[in-house]
């Protein structure tokens, strides 16, 4: 995407200015720093630590935080820290993959609706209406009951759920754009739909896409956690923040072993907060209205 030549003559400098504005936002920079350091920790930890996330040790169950287990152990003696980082990797894998998938679906449907004429527009937007009628969690439940638990199905379920908002955004941007002379000109010169999407829709929606992708990662993390919390997402023994929180549905774990659920809960909130800050920063940076402020 980054190498695509941007046809719009004024596109380069606003992008650069946007970056500059993003850099001057303390909230966004803190978010980025927190997120980057957690990501680094997640990626490096398995290389340096000898304790695997799924290694059970029945002789060291339900132990509080200590030097050998920084965040304590769970009910079968697995290291909570190792599982928390493994859970982070799996949660992010699910979130990023599903966000990319919904980005592609959402963009294409929005672009076709915006550029493809009235009939395509009507069909695409009515399907968006239907998909947006249901609260995400309900649709998630319905889909999960069909696919059963698993990492793959979880990604599929979240991807299928998250595109409608993006389609609406892209479509309204393109409808604005559709009036512009150069699109009319390209059509007149016989440019196909694919060409229009690739050369005009994409570069002109890039800001929407970047902001959506960022915020969608955060909401996908929350959706995955919710699904796993209900026991319908990532199945054990694989760790995810949601299924680590699942353990706290028992009063014993909730009150006696708080480290088993508080740390994953904290990690979840911190990461989602960080990503939301980054996303908000990006949105403000791309919004020309905030330029004067």
């Amino acid at each position: 995407m980054a190498t695509t030549p941007i046809s719009h003559p004024r596109a380069k400098s606003p992008a650069r200015r946007a970056l500059g504005r993003f850099g001057s936002k303390p909230g966004a920079m803190i978010g980025l720093a927190v997120f980057a350091s957690l990501l680094l920790l997640m990626l490096v930890h398995p290389l340096v630590s000898g304790i695997g996330p799924n290694t059970i040790d029945l002789r060291a169950i339900n132990q509080g935080p200590s030097a050998s287990h920084w965040l304590g152990t769970d009910g079968v003696g697995r290291d909570v820290f190792a599982r928390l980082l493994e859970g982070g990797r799996i949660s992010l894998l699910v979130a990023v993959t599903s966000s990319v998938a919904s980005l592609v679906i959402g963009f294409l449907i929005g672009a076709v609706a915006g550029l493809g004429g009235r009939i395509a527009d009507a069909i695409a937007m009515r399907s968006v209406d239907v998909a947006m009628t249901l609260p995400p969690v309900i649709l998630l439940l319905v889909l999960a009951s069909i696919t059963g638990p698993g990492i793959g199905p979880t990604i599929l379920v979240i991807s299928l759920l998250s595109w409608p908002v993006l389609s609406r955004l892209v479509r309204s941007r393109l409808l604005e754009l559709g009036q512009r002379d150069f699109v009319v000109a390209s059509r007149g010169m016989g440019a196909g739909l694919g060409h229009l999407i690739w050369r005009h829709a994409l570069p002109n929606s890039i800001d929407i896409l970047v902001v959506f992708a960022t915020l969608q990662v955060a909401s996908a993390i929350l959706l995955e956690a919710g699904l796993s919390f209900l026991g319908l997402g990532v199945p054990p023994p694989d760790a995810s923040w949601g299924n680590m929180l699942f353990a706290a549905r028992s009063t014993t774990v909730l009150t006696n072993y708080p480290w088993q659920w508080m740390f994953p809960g904290l990690a979840l909130v911190v990461v989602v907060l960080a990503i939301n800050f980054i996303g908000d920063g990006l949105r403000d940076a791309f919004d020309p209205r905030s330029e004067g402020a």
């Binding site: 290694t55 059970i56 009910g75 079968v76 023994p237």
Partner: peptide, 17 residues
């Protein structure tokens, strides 16, 4: 459906794996 059974299940799952 309780912690103990969930833990026993997790232990058996790890052992069988």
């Amino acid at each position: 459906n309780n912690d103990q059974a969930n833990n026993v299940m997790a232990a058996m799952q790890a052992m069988l794996a």
